[in-house]
Amino acid sequence: MHALQVIGAGGGDFLVKPGVGVMVWTLIAFGVTILLLRKFAFPPIQEALDKRRVTIEQSIEHAEQTRKEADALLREYRERLREAREQADDIVVRARRGAEKVHEDAIVEAKRSREEMMEQTRRDIQQETRRALDQIRSEVADLTVLATEKVTRKTLDDADHRRLIEEALEEFDFSELAGDERTGAATNGGERS
């Protein structure tokens, strides 16, 4: 409180009394400051800040561009991969189908060829059988002629007798021999005995 009294009593008026001289000096000092700052300080700082802002914007843009490109590339690769996988699947399916077809064809062919062979064999057998029957027939005729000559002690007129025997043999049914050889043979044997 004493201190404040001292200020009041001791004349502190100058503390709040403006002085024109200091004002003029203030204007000069501030004027010089503003001129120098405006000319030499603010423009380079502003320029540097603008430049950095532009650089940052460009960097961001560039990064975004790169990201977009990367995304596009990724999408394209995914698409290609998908296509490739589809194609691969397709190829596998086709190959499997082809293989199955080949397999089936082979089976069919094998069956056909086997049947053909069997048919051929059957035909051969029939042919052989017929040939054998013809041979048997002629053998039987000869044997009969021989046996008859032995029994009758006389020579049969070849042409006449042969005709007779053959007529007699005609009555035998050899066809059974062709159908069932054993039965036929048995029948034959039975007839003969």
């Binding site: 120098l36 030499f40 300080a41 700082i45």
Partner: peptide, 9 residues
């Protein structure tokens, strides 16, 4: 003021 700002600039 001027020296600092210009130096920084």
């Amino acid at each position: 003021t001027t020296a600092t700002m210009i130096w920084i600039a």
